[in-house]
Amino acid sequence: MTEPLVNIAGVRLAYGGGAGTLAVDGLDLSVGPGECAAVVGPSGCGKSSLMKLVNGLMPPTAGTIHVAGKRVDGPLKIVGMAFQNPTLLPWRSTLDNLLLPLEIVEPYRGRIRRERKAFEAEARALLSTVGLAGFEKSLPRQLSGGMQQRASLCRALIHNPALLMLDEPFGALDAFTREELWDVLQRVWMERRFTTILVTHDLREAVYLADTVHVMSARPGRIVTRRRVDFPRPRTLQTAMLPEFTDLVNGLREQIRLERDDAAAAKESEAVR
């Protein structure tokens, strides 16, 4: 078996010191190189916290996180991130927004002055793979929400990260745009095969895109179930209509409902005591 790219072992995170809110506890998760892993779970279970931990933005209270064989102890620089909110800089054109990571992360940072033309060409190519050719000079406010999210995805990928982390990237989009972007993401991923961790509330999205779906418990979050998803790629909306697909989604939905009820019951019995 190949070495996992991301390996999380026994991680606990307490906000506000050891006695503070436990966001995650006893979290184990590993993601192989080139794999697309989806993480689903009830709201507030620590999914965004998990992202920050893997990124090295916060140290875990206990446990270890390894990425690409090295223990994480600070910002990683080999990670691309995108969120529900596209967070493009409103004063920069789409193209210049894409170049932002290259102005920051080494080795591009040292080269961008001299090789700007080459980098711009790369950015243009990336924009056209997500269907944004012709919008290089547009400001973010001249783009629709879906187009901004495409640009945000490109910004996360421009420095060829080994790991892409997406936190509900399509959560704010309408159903049609969302499904369109699933295909965009799948296409880019199939071309480049970066490892992906996708946090989402949409179970169909998780099953459509992921090789493995990890279900988290209510807070403090840990992984309670994993499901492999073996539908052949590229998956299409036809795939999403297969009975096996629907069964898998319904199974996951049931699992999360149980998790939520368990948590509520646990709270209740605590209150009774």
């Binding site: 620089k77 990670v79 909110n85 967070t87 800089l89 920051i104 910004r155």
Partner: peptide, 22 residues
């Protein structure tokens, strides 16, 4: 925006980078 700060910090941006660029 905290998310934008996360994006930049995860790329290894220094405090000065963040002030100057954003």
């Amino acid at each position: 925006e905290p998310e934008l700060e996360d994006v930049l910090r995860s790329l290894g941006a220094t405090r000065r980078d963040i002030v100057v660029k954003v």
